[in-house]
């Protein structure tokens, strides 16, 4: 019994302590702009898209070895969740797999947040089918729209193009919260949403398994997921604006030949943090100098070098350096 009393007392004391510290400090982390005063080397607050996360993780990891005093953690609240914090001034950098939306711009304006859009890398949305599927040689944007959009009447491959077998298609798509879906929705689905019987998953690996496992499956996801599984999947060449059927590869994505399904990946930086917080400036410069190489390492496609150089100039100008 004595032991119990002791432990109970200990627990109560701990709670008291916690409550006391909670009351004592009203302003825990402070706003992003004053992050520089925190600790020796300061800190940079980064949140946003899970698609961009691997790039930023790599940047943070490398940055840490050069600036060990600076804290550069990365969160993944998603593109929308990231912007929600960013437009309130809670974060310094917001990663995004789509450009900022009108209503988010408005929010930023209301809160007096000025920002700069930076492009980090390209991703090519890859449309894939099962390895055993040998008849889908290419698809046009119109065909994709017909297949995927809400209320689509397509059931079998024969409905897509004459001559293809009359076998029922199984659809796999990223979840509607993801930036990947947003992008597909914009360029293929005419902003109308996806067909109801498509299987959605927030985890793109599930989509890979879905298409690998069903002979009549079709799905789309980021280029990195195709690259990792290219022995088990067949990628579908997409007919671009010039009328050529193009497969997603490093070159076609970078040159823009693979369109309309290649998309830029962004990060947005708070101008005020850039000017006032040395750590943020250093981090952003470091990002732009290394994003290309690091993006390739984690499965994305780098921009042409001059685009990074141009952005570096822009940042220097804004920060007044």
């Amino acid at each position: 019994m004595k032991a119990f009393k002791k432990s109970a007392l200990l627990m109560m004391l701990t709670t008291l302590l916690i409550v006391a510290t909670a009351c004592g400090n009203g302003d825990g982390s402070g706003s992003a702009a004053e992050g520089g005063s925190e600790g020796k080397g300061g800190s940079v607050k980064i949140d946003g898209s899970s698609t961009v996360f691997p790039i930023m993780e790599a940047v943070s990891e490398e940055f840490k070895s050069e600036h060990p005093d600076v804290k550069v953690p990365v969160g993944v609240s998603g593109t929308g969740g990231g912007f929600e914090q960013f437009t309130k001034g809670e974060t310094d950098l917001s990663n995004a797999s789509r450009p900022i939306k009108e209503e988010e711009k408005k929010l930023a304006e209301e809160n007096g947040i000025e920002y700069t859009e930076l492009t980090l890398a390209f991703d090519g949305l890859s449309v894939v089918v099962n390895k055993e599927n040998d008849f889908v040689d290419q698809l046009t944007v119109e065909e994709l729209t017909k297949m995927w959009k809400k209320g689509s009447k397509v059931k079998t491959w024969a409905d897509v193009r004459e001559g293809w077998p009359e076998e029922e298609i199984k659809f796999f798509s990223p979840g509607t919260d993801s930036g990947t879906f947003d992008y597909f929705n914009e360029v293929i689905l005419e902003e109308k949403g996806i067909r109801k019987d498509a299987q959605l998953s927030e985890n793109d690996n599930i989509l890979v398994k879905g298409v690998t496992g069903s002979q009549n499956g079709i799905g789309f996801f980021g280029y990195a997921y195709y690259l990792e599984n290219k022995d088990n999947l067949t990628v579908v060449p997409i007919v671009n604006e010039a009328g050529e059927a193009v497969k997603p590869t490093g070159e076609t994505i970078q040159s823009g030949k693979y369109n309309p399904l290649s998309r830029p990946l962004f990060t947005y930086v708070n101008n005020k943090s850039l000017k006032e917080n040395e750590a943020v400036y250093n981090y952003v410069m470091y990002t732009l100098e290394n994003a290309g190489k690091l993006a390739e390492e984690v499965g994305y496609v780098a921009l042409p070098q001059e685009q990074y150089d141009k952005q570096i100039e822009k940042i220097k100008e804004i920060a007044g350096k």
């Binding site: 916690i18 510290t21 909670a22 400090n25 825990g28 982390s29 949140d47 899970s50 996360f53 691997p54 930023m56 993780e57 943070s60 990891e61 840490k64 804290k71 550069v72 953690p73 990365v74 969160g75 993944v76 927030e202 985890n203 793109d204 690996n205 980021g222 990195a224 997921y225 690259l227 990792e228 599984n229 499965g299």
Partner: peptide, 30 residues
């Protein structure tokens, strides 16, 4: 947070947790 290269120093530090880290790894392509 998801990528954190420091340990929490006090109750006001940022942090990550096991399930977040696991989920992040599970959704990576590699």
């Amino acid at each position: 947070l998801t990528y954190v290269a420091f340990l929490p120093e006090n109750l006001y530090s940022g942090f990550t947790a096991m399930p977040i880290q696991i989920y992040n790894w599970a959704t990576r392509p590699q």
